[in-house]
Design a protein around this nucleic acid. Structure first.
Lengths: 232, 232
DNA sequence: CGTTCAATTGATCAGCGTCAAACTAGGTGG
DNA sequence: CCACCTAGTTTGACGCTGATCAATTGAACG
């Protein structure tokens, strides 16, 4: 892999503190590949041969069972994914597909584990990353179990707003059908939920969202840092 | 803390590989306490001052929002809990209460982080533990989003069976109301779901479960390692 | 300009929660 | 020892949320 390509991931928390030597080991056998949309990068159940990093585009993590499918997360650059499976040398629990044209870096799991065994700073960075991922999933579980679909949508919009520097107008960065699946509902139900938020000052036109009455929306959503704060 | 008490946690994966010296640092400021049932050990939102370890009894992790509450997990000896919050020095995302008379070891988070910074083997053990926890929560999310409540119950019973060396008769190790909450349903609905499993060869009397037709139950439950295998 | 797929809308239905009441079991005190 | 109390469980009736099915609209793309 060319240095120009590795430099874009060098700054990630996960790799920032490691030695140059170990970073070279990590990237010597790496691939960079560009994929068209809707390509399934990994399938749940497969062996975790590579640690993946999205550096451009977008990737959806999803899972299926018995003919059903649900969206688990959407990843935007620059994010690693399926670190836990790589470290444990276990099968992927989720599948991943590109949702648009995407550039992905693939680090052989074997090398990741080797460096993990030898580089103590990297091992600690892995802990930080995993702890963060773990807490994100716990928050997600709380969201799912404690809130109705309308409340989930309302809080999701507030989180989007926060991600966009508290702008009252922003764009949904995914298809509504995938958003619906992520929020644990059907597209039809999402469509109705959006309508139901209109009295609370939410206007949605295609992917454009405008929040005209923040306090009403917050009164409904009742966001809490223990579910909705990304940084905690 | 007396050596007789520390020895019972020394064998845990998390502490097994660390130096004696660092183990002493970890336990020098530790408490052992015995609690009656229904004591709230930690509350979500609190600072993570201690890493907890159940060594006897049982502890429930739960979370609340807006007056609602849901059971997140039940911990049996010997298990650590809230490792992620301790390491990240972040607030707990879940509360914990004893469900019966329990003995709990409390390791000051400060010491845990100190040893984590200095003991590379411990850092790696933390990774293994966190990766395991992360994957458990992901599996739980899949269970919730992809299955109906009846299917969740059926698979839960099959997992219990597996945990009891594939015995067709075993005891539920928790109250039905907590099981219901854990499975994301109401006690009333659980009661009816249990009835609904009767045609599939499931007999439940109080806490005693008997599976009389495994293949029928499996045909309904359709268990998959990617959700139901604890070891993966 | 037609094809295609997502999004919407309406009608219907099932699953599950809510409320209320009856039942049970374990523990307490007369 | 038995009556009673308490808390969990079960049962029934009812209603709401959200899923399903079907049809229409809308938008992107060749």
């Amino acid at each position: 892999m060319r240095p120009s390509q590795t430099s874009e991931i060098r700054k990630l928390d996960l790799f920032r503190d490691m030695s140059e030597e170990n970073f070279l080991i990590l990237t010597r056998g790496a691939y960079v590949q560009t994929f068209p949309p809707q390509v399934e990068l990994i399938s749940e159940g497969d062996a975790a041969d590579f640690l993946h990093i999205v550096v451009a585009g977008g990737v959806e993590l999803f899972a299926g069972w018995n003919g059903r499918e649900t969206s688990m997360a959407t990843l935007r650059p620059i994010s690693t994914f399926i670190l836990a499976a790589t470290i444990r040398d276990a099968p992927y629990l989720m599948s991943a597909r590109t949702i648009e044209k995407s550039r992905v870096i693939l680090l052989p799991s074997y090398d990741v584990r080797e460096v993990f065994d030898n580089d103590n700073d990297f091992a600690r960075a892995v802990v930080a990353e995993l702890a963060q991922c773990y807490r994100a999933v716990v928050k997600n579980t709380k969201d799912m179990k404690l809130r109705t679909s309308l409340e989930r949508l309302a809080n999701y919009l507030l989180r989007c707003r926060a991600k966009n520097e508290d702008a009252d107008e922003f764009e949904l960065n995914m298809e509504k059908r995938r958003l619906a699946s992520y929020l644990g509902m059907t597209p039809e139900n999402l469509s109705r939920a959006i309508k139901a938020l209109r009295p609370y000052g939410v206007e949605v036109e295609a992917t454009a969202v405008r929040i005209t009455n923040l306090s009403d929306l917050e009164k409904l959503a009742k966001p809490t840092p223990l579910i909705d704060d990304k940084s905690l």
